[in-house]
């Protein structure tokens, strides 16, 4: 009997998950359908760009700088054994542009901006602001959700690029300024090895995908949250957990697709 109930539990979870993914997809469709209004009134998006993008700037810049510095330090220690310290720039830049930039920036974005989005929309629901808007004949998906979605999609690649740029600078600082790797070979080897289309653009593409997914998850959880205090806090936690897992899994798939073949 224990096996049967365990199986039943797995089955129920699977059905629930598929159900929620379906709902989220439908929600995504609704957002796209109602997006026209937010582009016609672009200041709605600008307002949300402030709370998602500008408010995440500091954490992204500081985190990027430190990740780059650690990469510089660790990379130097490893490369020194093989006498190829001059490849430090390549290592730092490729690591950041391809992987760490998009992934870490997206993780930070999920916990900084994503959770805030969920909590904000959940609270708007709990205090009947969403119903009030509906009663005023204003579609809340068009007015509340869509501008936030586009703000997330726009700011994520920019934040990831900032993260990578700060990281390269951090690596440069530790490697060249502190340790004394040759500056010329640092930059020239980096430029020779990092391809614009293959590496930089794929990184941007990744962060675009992550931004879309994280924002959808955050908005869906907020919009779907039970209108109570526990409901909203649970939804906020779910946003961070689900979107972090989604980022890491998607990163593997995208990496395999982009860089796996060559």
């Amino acid at each position: 009997m224990a096996i049967v109930s365990a199986l039943r539990g797995i089955g129920r979870r699977t059905v629930d998950t598929v159900w929620r993914i379906g709902l989220a997809t439908r929600f995504f469709g609704l957002i796209l359908f109602h997006s026209g209004n937010s582009f016609r009134r672009f200041h709605l998006i600008i307002k949300e760009l402030f709370s998602t993008g500008v408010m995440s700037l500091i954490i992204i810049v500081v985190a990027g700088l430190f990740v780059g510095m650690v990469l510089g330090l660790q990379g130097y220690e490893t490369l020194k054994r093989y006498g190829s310290e001059s490849a430090l720039g390549v290592m730092v830049a490729l690591g950041l542009v391809r992987e760490l930039g998009p992934v870490v920036a997206a993780l930070l974005f999920a916990s900084r901006a994503g959770s805030a989005m969920t909590a904000e929309i959940g609270l708007m629901k709990a205090t009947e602001q969403v119903s009030a808007m509906e009663m005023m004949a204003v579609n809340p998906i068009a007015r509340i959700v869509a501008p936030r979605f586009w703000a997330g999609v726009i700011s994520m690649p920019l934040l990831a690029a900032l993260f990578s740029a700060m990281g390269v600078f951090g690596g440069y600082f530790v490697g060249v300024v502190q340790i004394g790797v040759d500056e010329g070979s640092f930059w020239s080897q980096m430029q020779a090895a990092v391809d614009f289309k293959h590496d930089v653009m794929n990184g941007v593409l990744k962060s675009f995908v992550f931004g879309t997914v994280v924002t959808i998850i955050a908005l869906f959880e907020g919009y779907d949250a039970p209108p109570t205090a526990e409901g909203v806090s649970g939804a906020t936690t779910r946003t961070v957990v689900t979107s972090s897992l989604a980022i890491l899994m998607l990163d593997f798939i995208l990496t395999a697709m982009m860089f796996g073949g060559s």
């Binding site: 205090t127 602001q129 119903s131 509906e134 009663m135 004949a137």
Partner: peptide, 19 residues
């Protein structure tokens, strides 16, 4: 939606937009 424009509703705790 056209009908709702002719209606107004005051919610229990006001439901002002907090932002």
């Amino acid at each position: 939606y056209a009908m709702r424009r002719k209606m107004g509703m005051l919610f229990q705790f006001g439901a002002l937009f907090t932002d």
